[in-house]
Design a protein around this nucleic acid. Structure first.
Lengths: 345, 345
DNA sequence: CACCCGAGGTTTTACGTATAACTTCCAGGT
DNA sequence: ACCTGGAAGTTATACGTAAAACCTCGGGTG
């Protein structure tokens, strides 16, 4: 345990500025807080500002937060830092936050194993509210106990707790994928599913099965995999090597898994999309980095962040957050094509 | 501008807990702060803890921070959220921080264009210190003005300001790449360089040129590109189509650019690595997601974070941070091979 | 018996800020 | 001559916590 004793001289306070400018501390607060119109003369205000600049004064945020009773800071809990989707969510949230004088702090939920830490041990900033992804389920218990306003992203509408939600029409995205592949003539599917137990993935599976139900000759097998390229490749490779008729299309829960599926295909001597179609989800940068580029579903991530932050602000003001789910859309690229036997074999 | 008035009942304070337990506020502070051995009886301590639990008491961090004069929170400034390298840096920094009761908050420097915001407007937590990547140069001015202890990562050793630095032996990494390709027989190189003006990229260029200087017949052309796959592809495609003898190897500043270079090669009908070798840098997940997998340089990112945080802790305690730079190493994969004309043409 | 001492607390203070409430001064109206 | 009222400040207070300094009481000691 360390004992952080600031090395240099103590930072100047508003009282130091007041002394330097020959006014009271209250006047400094008024001037620097931009609340002095009609209360302080122009010349005095100038003296205060000059003194503050000369001393290099920075208000003590801890004191300000204590006084005001809030911090104008929100915590965004994400499952993993590298996930591009959440980087875009952050961008949207931070933009809306900035418009309202708020800041956004990130808490990457420790991925998978490891001691599930307290989010507030890491982001020990004083917070006004929390926006959390449903994928960061492990951190959720601690979040609930904190008694802070909570906005959930893309989570089970039936779950209790959150003050508001922002949902994506994930089910419709999966329906679009299924419709696209069915129209191309595919009937035998492999669903490369994320092994993560989260609402957003459960919806994908349900929607895919629903879309195929009732289609004559349609068949689907589901294989779970961890969310990385190698796990995706191994799962796909194993599933493709099974006896019986081979699937002609692999529907993946995520672009990362789709990249793995493409590698599996190549290893088995199958060409994508000629011998095998592969679809992803999320439209990450990875989707256009691999060859062929992935047919996938683009999600309005920035909008998710914007709506999430707006909802949190609404809750903080005691207003009702407007509900509604955001549309997603299929992006057709080079990884999907008619099955080898020709349409409607 | 919103007026965040907490909707529910006010959160209980330590005074409320004291009242409920029938003791003074000071006793609550002692018990909950685990400083009560020999000062408070076992039974009283139990009553206090029970009362705190029953009321759902959470200490007000703003008040605690004000009282203690520090927050045990560090800010990590990264150039972009999606950059895997910095996700790993964060992991390392957060681990060391946790051992010392510190937290780490992320500030993603707004990438490229856009109004250069104040890092403290976004991460308005009260902070004890800052760890910043040299790639987040635009945010640096504001950081300096804050008068906080600053640790720079992978930055120009000659630059003034930072209280400590953590450096990677990037130059040696590039030397290893050059030695590898020279040994394979390559002589005509294309350097696909990051257009970002940052120390870490300047070092790559210098080391590469130094390594080639004096090698008979060696020639290199440098082409800059923004740090994304499309920009890399376009730059490489254009450079490969120029008249004159074509380079047999493309050395990239980053795996992302290398992925772009591979796509360019494919478009031009060149096979990697048979007709053209491509090397990356950083060893991101992308390096093994593309086909062929990239020969690249692996950086000890977690260690960078660990050393960075350790250095910051040292500075906060008034100690001297130990200097020294971290080694990197080449990882040879499928994207590099002898040039088409055979070794040592 | 007077004294000290330690256990088990309590009272008080300070951290730096924002702001409500108060003061002072002076010009203008009646 | 007296009151009104605004301009230009100042004084005082509260936010919730941590911890230094102080109190009180019963038992052991010289």
């Amino acid at each position: 345990m360390t004992s952080p004793a600031p090395p240099g001289p103590p930072r100047p306070t508003s009282r130091d500025v007041a002394r330097a400018a020959g006014v009271s501390q209250a006047t400094v607060s008024l001037v620097l807080g931009d609340k002095w119109r009609g209360r302080v003369s122009e010349s005095t205000a100038g003296r205060v500002r000059d003194a503050a600049r000369d001393l290099g004064y920075r208000p003590n945020l801890a004191a300000r937060n204590l006084r005001l009773g809030h911090t104008r800071t929100a915590l965004l809990v994400v499952p993993a830092l590298t996930n591009e989707f959440f980087a875009r969510v952050y961008t949207g949230a931070a933009a809306v936050a900035a418009e309202h004088g708020f800041g956004v702090v990130l808490y990457p939920s420790p991925d998978g194993t490891g001691p599930a830490r307290d989010p507030f041990a890491s982001a020990r900033a004083a917070l006004d509210g929390v926006i959390a992804s449903s994928m960061a389920a492990d951190a959720l218990g601690a979040l609930r106990g904190a008694g802070l306003p909570l906005v959930m992203l893309d989570s089970d509408p039936a779950a209790p707790g959150p003050a508001a939600m922002v949902n994506l029409d994930i089910a419709d995205g999966m329906r679009q994928v299924a419709a696209h592949l069915l129209a191309l003539g595919h009937r035998r599917f492999l669903h490369l599913a994320s092994a993560v137990d989260s609402w957003t993935f459960a919806v994908r599976a349900r929607a895919l099965h629903d879309a195929l139900r009732g289609v004559p000759g349609a068949h689907i097998r589901t294989v779970p995999a961890a969310l990385d390229v190698r796990a995706g490749r191994e799962a796909a490779e194993h599933a493709l090597a099974l006896p019986g008729p081979r699937p002609t299309a692999i529907v993946c829960d995520d672009d990362i898994l789709a990249a793995g599926a493409c590698k599996a295909a190549r290893r088995l001597g199958l060409r994508v999309p000629d011998d095998l179609s592969v679809t992803g989800f999320d439209d990450l940068a990875l989707a256009t980095a691999v060859e062929p580029e992935l047919t996938t579903v683009r999600l309005p991530a920035e909008q998710v962040g914007e709506r999430g932050m707006s909802a949190l602000l609404a809750v903080l003001e005691g207003r009702q957050a407007e509900p509604g789910s955001l549309p997603v859309h299929l992006v057709v690229r080079g990884s999907s094509a008619p099955p080898p036997a020709g349409p409607t074999a």
